[in-house]
Simulated assay, not measured.
Amino acid sequence: MPHKVSLSSLKLTDFRNYAAASLVLDGRHVVLTGDNGAGKTNLMEAVSFLSPGRGLRRATYADVTRVGARAGFSIFAELDGMEGEVEIGTGIDTSDENTGRKLRINGTPVKTADELTDHLRVLWLTPAMDGLFAGGSSDRRRFLDRLVLSLDPAHGRRATDFERAMRSRNKLLDDGRFDPSWLSGIEEQMASLGIAMALAREEMLGLLARLIDETRETSPFPSATLELSGFMDGQFARPSVDLEDEYAAILAENRYRDAGAGRTLDGPHRADLLVRHREKQMEAERCSTGEQKALLVGLILAHAKLVANLTGHAPVLLLDEIAAHLDEARRGALFDLIDALGGQAFMTGTDRSMFSLLGDRAQFFTVAEGRVFE
């Protein structure tokens, strides 16, 4: 059984619609119910800031700071983490010249948010993701990279460095500076980072596909078939050094083409995640809305299990409006699967009765107008 990572307290100041809020948690799952717009998702978004990045809404720090706040926002959490009990504080201070996000772990400033992954992994599913399969490839790449990041914390840094190198190359090409020594150096860096990104994606999808195969007979949700497309398709069984050389050669060969296009046309930033409903042998984007939701739920739960298996620590799950479109039988099966993962889940909904099958496995809170009541 994986170690259970769980929050024991959560405190917010000037975050979204909360001037101040404090939750004392007992390690069980957390159910937040209340009217739409009351602030349920805002509480889960605060928990998502305990992971690298900009949270489940990908919001700017100005957007999450409460309107009228004088000095930014703060989030403070106590938890039983992957390395034991820990206190995490994060936020911004608009009175400081450096308005970037600040982070403290056990009261000590840390340089990078990547250190958060030493203490917990956070996964989420929100209604905004319901259109993932029918939407643009950029949304699926972002989703895919969040899945990889939860297993490989270095993936985010590689992606950032690749984007930076690609922007440098694009700028040189746009300025008409075709100096081969400059471009070759940048392209070699892009090749090293880009192939590492692609291999990390392939490895994660392979592990996830095997786990889905192992559990498909007992899962109440449809199984997904996963495939990457759009960048060096079918070549990743070759040695990485050969792949890097080939990608660098592609970049060098297509400098003038990319200059004319105003962007780099080959790379991991062009890849797409292809998803099929295995039982129906149908592309996910052609499935009904309900089938797409069920596929997504099954995929998130399978990935959460993979994270627990590989790290030995169950992730914290954030499941926004998770029960709204499920019948009672499937809701019960969902709650049992969440509980079996061995971690702590935060769930939201407008109707408390939809979570009754959780029984005493959950701690219930009512949210109303920026206030929280147990």
Rank of each mutant, 00 (worst) to 15 (best):
D242G: 03
M204L: 13
G185E: 12
L199D: 05
L265R: 15
D174M: 04
R201K: 10
R263L: 05
E214N: 15
R210E: 10
A224M: 04
L199K: 07
E187D: 15
K280I: 00
A237L: 10
C287P: 10
M190G: 12
D266G: 00
L274D: 02
A248P: 04
E253Y: 00
A191V: 09
F236W: 12
M197S: 05
D174V: 01
M232Q: 15
E246Q: 11
A200E: 06
P239E: 10
Y247N: 08
M232K: 14
E291L: 07
E227K: 12
H269K: 11
E279S: 14
S181P: 00
Q235I: 03
I212A: 10
S181Y: 02
A249Y: 01
L207Y: 00
D258T: 01
A209N: 02
F236P: 07
R201F: 06
T264M: 04
F236Y: 13
L226W: 10
R278L: 09
S288Y: 08
L251G: 07
S223W: 15
E283G: 05
A252G: 09
L274W: 03
T218V: 14
R278M: 03
S288A: 13
L226N: 11
S229Q: 12
R201A: 05
S184N: 13
R286H: 13
P220K: 13
G194K: 11
R238H: 14
F221G: 11
H277A: 04
L173K: 12
G290V: 05
A248F: 08
E203V: 12
R263P: 01
T225H: 11
D233K: 02
L251D: 08
T215A: 04
E214F: 05
S223I: 09
K280A: 14
M232N: 14
Q281D: 12
F236T: 03
R255T: 03
L207T: 00
G230V: 04
S219I: 12
E244F: 04
E283N: 09
E214P: 02
L243K: 11
M282C: 07
A191C: 06
G234T: 08
E187F: 04
H277R: 07
W182C: 00
E244W: 04
L183G: 06
E214D: 15
I186F: 11
E246I: 02
R255D: 05
P268Y: 01
A284G: 08
P220L: 10
R216D: 08
L226V: 07
D272I: 02
M282I: 03
A259S: 14
E253K: 15
M232F: 14
Q281K: 07
E188V: 10
D213M: 00
Q281A: 07
D175W: 10
P220W: 11
D258A: 02
I250L: 14
E203H: 15
A252I: 01
I250Y: 06
E214K: 14
G262A: 01
I195K: 13
L265Y: 06
S219D: 15
L172A: 14
L274R: 14
R201M: 03
G267Q: 09
Y247W: 12
W182Y: 09
M282P: 01
E203M: 07
L173N: 12
V275A: 04
A224K: 06
E246T: 06
A259L: 06
S229V: 05
R255Y: 01
D233Y: 01
I250S: 11
